[in-house]
Design a protein around this nucleic acid. Structure first.
Lengths: 341, 341
DNA sequence: TTGTACGCGTTATCAC
DNA sequence: GTGATAACGCGTACAA
């Protein structure tokens, strides 16, 4: 009754009264089999509940129709979105996606890369570019195609991303233009995270360019939750001089900051302006709506899939796909208090 | 230079001057090999950048240290959270997680189940219980262990979840107790989604229990985004009589509803109360903070992993793990307008 | 159009 | 402690 029976090609062949080769053909190139036998084989497949064994198939054919992705965490909406699109595009090409999480740890990422490659992944998606050289060496030695997303680099790898530094600089310039002179930044954790680091560097460069105007500039780092953003805001707002604008490294931190500002009785943007980065869904639903950098994560995900598929098929690809981002002005950024309009 | 060389057991064996059997042992049962040879073998492994081939291993050993999960979408924070915990717990046991998305489509789910089983998944995590009988039959015939999470059922399967119906009934009762008489619900899509359907049924049952008090009750369904919640709220609020409380099937819809309410100039909860379900991060950061049902998704995820691991190891398990949920009262639910305190 | 037979990379069972 | 060698399930020349 509870017999666990895993039918093989052989079982199907016997049941249908044909050879294993014919069954294999029915599954892979149905046209090369006459409808009569095909029908019989397909019936046997259904009856036995046969599913091709992946291991055997991979072993015999040397490819898997599988690609892997290693992302920092599934708990962040921006990766979830991009990955969803990535997988939809792969799906259309009949390719399966395997997802693994690194927890923002580059050693763990290296492990996962090896695991996915060992599993026969035909190609890999990795996030950003900050990782040990050994990981790159491994991939290149194996000849496993891979793409890097969410940022742009200047190596010979394939990038599908946007210029985090420039975008961050632009939004910071907007803040300065509006007249803010005491500015602070709540950054994501920059260690081994080139996206977070680039955003800090972008904001810093904008500050340097306006060095004669900006009076104070402070950066603190915070982890990944709304709560972390709120806590960081708490600390910043106690400093002297109190910043009139807080630039956040991502929307999660920014939403946390807005919430805490309101809880402290500070008007946004009346008393203090706040900006984000990413334009996640919630950004337009908080009050005031968040001024942020819109990143088309879905477009980036499917572009990454397209590049990776071409790479795997050995078709020509452009080494660098820049995804356009743009600043969306919403209610959370305004002129500093005491400004005459 | 760009030679793609995939070293095999054989290559390592030759490089280390031993047999393939010894290399295999070094990797799987290091104790059964003397340190001297082991050292030599491990060096060869490093030098060649060898990674065991998963296919070959699965073929020879008939197990994979891999479990699969099929979730409706990665874009929903509640699944992301639970899954993250699920995978962390698996990870501690040296088991890899493969994730696939069904897009809320039970046919697609069936495909993914077959794909994962074909890939050698030792066990599976599925969400909820509404799916074609064929999917269950397939799993049972193959003898693949699986657990069902996010809800509880009364079949002989293994459940790790909570009583969606009862929890929804409870929060609805709270609404009624506060004096609301014209009530509406924005439900998730209930087709092939037992969690959404149970929540509707729970609210309905509370309405029936208070049939003499409740004057009007309306349900409409909405998809999965903030925007959908906002749109649905728009429609509801135009009806006569206008509801004084809107019960939402999940927090995403509720946050969308709150946002639209404020945009329409309606005070929450002054003019209209709104409740959610799930207690996602943002629930405590919107204004007013959302009254909702707190679901410990992380605890559920790791409990699911534990049960599945025991199932795979053929150890005794309880067939049903109920995860406690509780209503968290926050600002978005109050008495109806015109009530004298 | 269909069948036969070999090999893919690994583990497991024996000898040694 | 280590080495041959036979499976494992499948794809695919090649033959029929």
């Amino acid at each position: 009754m509870n017999e666990t029976f895993r039918p093989t090609l052989n079982d199907v062949a016997r049941a249908a009264g044909v050879s294993t080769a014919t069954v294999s053909r029915c599954l892979n190139e149905p046209d090369r089999v006459v409808p009569a036998t095909r029908e019989r084989v397909m019936r046997a497949v259904k009856d036995l509940g046969y599913t091709p064994d992946f291991g055997g198939r991979a072993l015999a054919s040397r490819r898997t129709k599988t690609v892997g992705a290693v992302i920092p965490t599934m708990e962040n909406a921006i990766f979830a979105r991009g990955l969803q699109a990535f997988q939809e595009t792969l799906s259309e090409a009949g390719v399966t996606l395997l997802v693994a999480g690194s927890g923002y740890d580059s050693e763990r990422e290296a492990e996962q890369v090896r695991a996915l490659v060992g599993r026969g992944a035909d190609g890999l998606l990795l996030i950003g570019l900050a990782r040990p050289q050994a990981t790159y060496d491994y991939l290149r030695q194996r000849g496993t195609p891979y793409v890097l997303a969410w940022n742009l680099g200047d190596t010979s790898d394939h990038f599908i991303g946007f210029d985090n530094l420039r975008a961050a600089a632009e939004i910071a310039s907007k803040v300065i233009e509006l007249g803010h002179r005491d500015i602070a930044m709540i950054a994501g954790v920059t260690s081994m995270n080139d996206r977070a680091a680039d955003r800090v560097e972008g904001v810093r460069s904008a500050m340097r360019r306006a060095i004669s105007e900006v009076k104070s500039f402070d950066v603190i780092e915070a982890p990944y939750t709304f709560e972390d953003g709120a806590t960081a805001f708490d600390r910043l707002v106690r400093r002297t001089p109190r910043p009139t604008a807080v630039i956040c490294g991502n929307d999660v931190l920014a939403v946390g900051a807005i919430s805490r500002a309101k809880a402290l009785g500070l008007g946004v943007p009346g008393d203090i302006s706040i900006t984000g980065f990413d334009d996640i869904d919630i950004a337009s639903f908080v009050e005031p709506a968040l001024t942020t950098v819109h990143v088309p994560h879905r477009r980036m995900g499917s572009a990454a899939a397209q590049v990776l598929l071409r790479l795997i098929a050995n078709e020509p690809v452009e080494p660098r796909v820049e995804i356009g981002v743009e600043i969306v002005m919403r209610g959370s950024l305004g002129p500093p208090p005491g400004t005459t309009p």
